[in-house]
């Protein structure tokens, strides 16, 4: 799976360049996120606008990616497509993450 990264100050934007986060890539995704976030940016923005399918394995991998962060780091989300948004809503994970419509909006609003 391809992850495209961009750094702005202490924020790291990770765009998932893949239409699916599913059981086939969940472990790989979690490991890649660990490597990318280990350098310690304070805020990581995971941009999902290219992802049109996520299953519970993929959802679990995103939660795991957040749980493996240091205490000073936070993980926000942007660009949820309708199917992905619905999975977050059904599982109520939309109440756990700050979710922004797109990357510019997320970067403009520095959530505390």
């Amino acid at each position: 799976m391809n992850l495209i990264t961009q750094t702005n100050d202490d924020q790291l934007t990770v765009t998932v360049d893949d239409p699916r986060i599913d059981a086939a890539v969940a472990i790989q995704f979690k490991d890649r996120m660990r490597a990318l976030t280990a350098l310690g940016p304070n805020r990581i923005l995971l941009d999902l606008h290219k992802v049109d399918f996520i299953d519970s394995s993929g959802l679990g991998a995103i939660v795991a990616a957040m749980k493996q962060l240091d205490d000073h780091q936070r993980l926000d989300l942007s660009g949820l497509t309708p199917n992905v948004e619905k999975v977050f809503r059904l599982t109520r994970m939309d109440t756990i993450f700050a979710i922004y419509p797109d990357v510019p909006t997320a970067l403009a609003r520095r959530a505390g």
Binding site: S56, G60, V63, M66, V87, L90, T91, I96
Partner: peptide
Amino acid sequence: GRATLPEGGFGWCL
């Protein structure tokens, strides 16, 4: 809190 969030157990519920 973050440390105790579930990473699984969603499949059958969905």
